[in-house]
Design a protein around this nucleic acid. Sequence first.
DNA 1: GGCTAATAGTGCAAGAATGCACTCCATGTT
DNA 2: AACATGGAGTGCATTCTTGCACTATTAGCC
Lengths: 214, 214
Amino acid sequence: MFESATLRASKRRRTEHHINHCAQQLTEAHGLDGFTMDDLAEAAEVSRRTLFNYFPSKLDAVLGNMPVLSASALATFEAGGPHGDLVDDLGELARVIFTDEGLSREQLELSQRVFFANPRLIVTAHERFEAFSEALVEHILAREGADFGRARARLLMRLLVAVFDSSLVLDPSAEGRGARGTDGSDEDGAPDVPDRPLADVFSDHLATARALLA
Amino acid sequence: MFESATLRASKRRRTEHHINHCAQQLTEAHGLDGFTMDDLAEAAEVSRRTLFNYFPSKLDAVLGNMPVLSASALATFEAGGPHGDLVDDLGELARVIFTDEGLSREQLELSQRVFFANPRLIVTAHERFEAFSEALVEHILAREGADFGRARARLLMRLLVAVFDSSLVLDPSAEGRGARGTDGSDEDGAPDVPDRPLADVFSDHLATARALLA
DNA sequence: GGCTAATAGTGCAAGAATGCACTCCATGTT
DNA sequence: AACATGGAGTGCATTCTTGCACTATTAGCC
């Protein structure tokens, strides 16, 4: 009756992401109408039929699905979150998404490029994103009580999205966090961390944002 | 009823090789009894049950299956081969095996190490190999006629095996083939072709062998 | 307009992979 | 000797993937 974090489930998610990723690559390379579902099947190394087992349409394959927050993570959040601080706990939710969705900066950037390059995509992408964040707003209210105010919840969401966006742009200069001790191990300041876990970057930016607004 | 060179079939072969390869790696790392079928399942990222869908036993998983020559390749061979010269055509069969079996030097070396390190394996490996080459002997006779003589066919097989073995040892010095022109594009003589297609190396060695014995 | 070719999308049956609950056996423990 | 444990191997129901034949729609062409 239930999804275990099992081999089967993880392969399913992998395939889904893989198809989506290939679809976006093809879109970027040849445009939305520049490739067929057969091409996509070949690129993703699955049968054409399987594509439609995962996505109901070509556009959906390119759009991909919104991340799904695990019931347990949501339960924790609504119960007062792991830390007890609203913002921190929302950050935690974001972290969960990054982590178990395995999002990389490259993939997210690709998505953005593809979406913005294709009007047909961006409208639905936007709709879905709004729906997604509205759902999160709902969870915030469920946690904080209706008195918190829907407007404030929405504002908070927008702030988080802004922080998220800012974590996507690669800033080669700084380390965000305070000085980390006197050990000069990172001596020549090499900013060669193009693959620094997105979740970490996000945490940093969130902390910075809080400090800025505090 | 029949194997098309289809997605399904190619995935099956890939999985089979993958399982076999993982099994050999585990064997090399921990010994035959140093890992369980659960470990192998995890390493190969398939379910434990799937292992037994591919191989009837742990030992078989480590041994792997002998390559299967396509019916069409065999038909061509028995009909007088693609070139008409017996040795060349046997070389062609070898090439087919290398190619569509996707054998790499690393994998073959690993097999050798693992087999020689485990008496339990080497006996069956040897048996199977003998059976395989005896089958080839049969095909040679079918092509050349019984008058060719089983003894000569066997000798030929042994010679080819020797050539094969010699293609496995990495010789960083020479290019085997005659000088390839005066263009100095490979200037500093860099022998950096560790991944030169095995099929090609084999062809070269075979040519050299023929020249030597001619 | 009517044809044809290409491509999106669906239904269905057969083949593969998985999860799980077994059995069997060897080895060690008390 | 009785017993527990761990790992090999099997049977079977469920889910996933594939292949293939089908329909629908659209664009180009005569």
